[in-house]
């Protein structure tokens, strides 16, 4: 796959959809394409967050450590972006991500990611929007949980 094809993939990711081609090319060029075999971990919960991954091809499982061992909480597919929280907040990885199938990703390291964001505010806005969307979704889930708990205790 060449950079041109990667750019097409990036264009389909909501986070980057509004960026012009030159910026997408820059993003692709400054990131590393990395292939994982099925079962190989991208990173483990608790690792220092050094990079974010954009999924180009394949699927991956998100696992969280619990008292009963690792529990899969989500399966990610093409166009997902992984690991951006750890590099944005400078916290250790909050989950483990393992390739479910053979997985092709674009790996953007932390430094590069921050330089891109500071250089192009447009990208920062998109990231904010994406995060807000997620927060909204989480809040909604929380509200449902709370009302369920309330209903149960009543």
């Amino acid at each position: 796959m060449t950079m041109k094809e990667e750019v097409e993939v990036l264009r389909n990711i909501p986070l980057f959809a509004k960026l012009d081609t030159a910026k997408l090319k820059l993003l692709a060029f400054t990131s590393e394409r990395l292939t994982f075999e099925a079962g190989q971990a991208l990173f483990n919960q608790g690792d220092p967050g050094d990079a974010a991954y954009i999924m180009i091809e394949g699927e991956a499982d998100v696992l969280v450590d619990t008292a009963n061992g690792k529990v899969a909480v989500a399966r990610l597919a093409r166009n997902a972006i992984i690991g951006e929280i750890a590099i944005l907040c400078d916290v250790p990885r909050t989950a483990t991500v393992i390739a479910y199938t053979k997985l092709t990703t674009l790996r953007i390291d932390k430094e590069t990611f921050f330089r891109l964001v500071t250089e192009f505010p447009q990208m920062a806005v998109e990231i904010m929007r994406e995060l807000a969307r997620r927060l909204d979704k989480t809040t909604e889930q929380l509200r449902q949980c709370m009302s369920r708990v309330g209903a149960a205790s009543a």
Binding site: K23, F29, T30, E119
Partner: peptide, 17 residues
Amino acid sequence: VEIFAGLPPGHEFFEQF
């Protein structure tokens, strides 16, 4: 030229990439 023209001169990316 397409990729890097948008960056300010002397940006680290030139050196790096």
